[in-house]
Amino acid sequence: MDGASSDPALNEGLLPLGSSRANRWMVAEGRANLVRQPVLPRPATVKTQGKLVTFDLARTALVVVDMQNDFCHRDGWLAHIGVDVAAARRPIAPLRRLLPLLRGCDVPVIWLNWGNRPDRLNLSPSLLHVYNPNGAGTGLGDALPGSGAKVLERGSWSAAIVDELPTEPTDIHVAKYRMSGFQDTELDSILRNLGVNTLMFAGVNADQCVLCTLQDANFRGYDCLLLEDCTATTSPDYCMAATIYNVNQCFGFVVGSEAIAAELANGASKGTNRD
């Protein structure tokens, strides 16, 4: 149903106005119907590390953080500066299995990727210092020796999602410039237009960009599920352990992607609530 109300008479002669069925008016020259279309719940229940959790697939999105060449490819930036990216590649296989299932159940897939402006005017000295503490290294936006690729520059190979994780036209792409994907981006506006209140998180690094974004989501009132096997870090093991502990303790729930996949396969209903 395209209208904002279940009563056709209320929408007679009106046209839809809005980017998502979950947040749409019906309007004409002299009328506006602000009643949003109801979204039918599609409950899914999974066993997390703490308890049995039921959430609404109709109001859920997957946020995949920084699965990009510069973080995960053996010819990318992290590998160039001596980081073993094997750990950063671990989410690839479980995500390849899970993504088609989520798309098939009309769960939005949001790729939240680092993407610098070419002039780096959105990057402060304090942020640049994190990755180039002595000023003489190869940091954000600098050219890699040899290839000349600019580190995490938006639109470049460096910032592209790894080839092993193909995207679909229905996926949503958001560029970020901080460890939190909510800071100085349109992510929150997109999620509110989609009518989403539950977020599943995947990607790298678990203890940095994933956790910062998940924490900010929690602070904004979103329900958060960390997909443990779809999340990884190149940091020491204790950083991953601390991340899992803190998510369980303070910010949401931790669950394996196989539990999500099994629930989808066992009858979690499909729907087409969003455009």
Rank of each mutant, 00 (worst) to 15 (best):
S158F: 04
E29Y: 14
Y177V: 06
L99T: 12
R24G: 08
A61M: 08
A261M: 02
R21C: 02
L101K: 15
W111A: 12
T272R: 15
Q208S: 14
L15R: 10
L128Y: 03
R96C: 05
R31F: 01
P43L: 03
W114M: 09
A143M: 08
L199K: 07
A242R: 07
L17N: 08
P41A: 04
F71I: 04
A202Q: 03
G139N: 07
N197W: 01
D84F: 10
A149L: 04
A58V: 02
A4Q: 13
P8H: 11
L95K: 09
A159I: 02
N246L: 05
T138V: 15
G146P: 01
P169N: 13
A32C: 08
R24M: 11
D2G: 15
D184N: 15
I190L: 11
Y177L: 11
L52T: 04
D237K: 15
N116G: 10
D56S: 06
G13D: 00
E186W: 10
P118Y: 10
R117S: 00
S269G: 00
L95C: 09
K47C: 00
T45M: 01
D163H: 10
V255I: 07
Y245S: 04
A160W: 00
D207E: 10
R192V: 02
S19P: 02
G135K: 14
D188V: 08
H80D: 08
F71R: 15
D216V: 05
I161S: 10
A206R: 10
S19G: 13
G221M: 09
R274S: 14
P145F: 05
M240N: 06
G252N: 03
R220P: 00
D119L: 13
V151Y: 12
F251E: 08
D237Y: 04
V27G: 09
V247M: 07
P38C: 09
K176Y: 01
N33C: 14
W114C: 06
S126Y: 06
C230V: 04
E258G: 02
A160V: 05
V151S: 10
S124N: 06
C72P: 11
T198G: 01
A4W: 03
K47L: 01
P145L: 07
L187N: 09
A241Y: 01
V174Y: 04
L52C: 00
P236Y: 03
D216F: 07
V196Y: 11
W77R: 10
L17D: 06
A232D: 00
L101G: 03
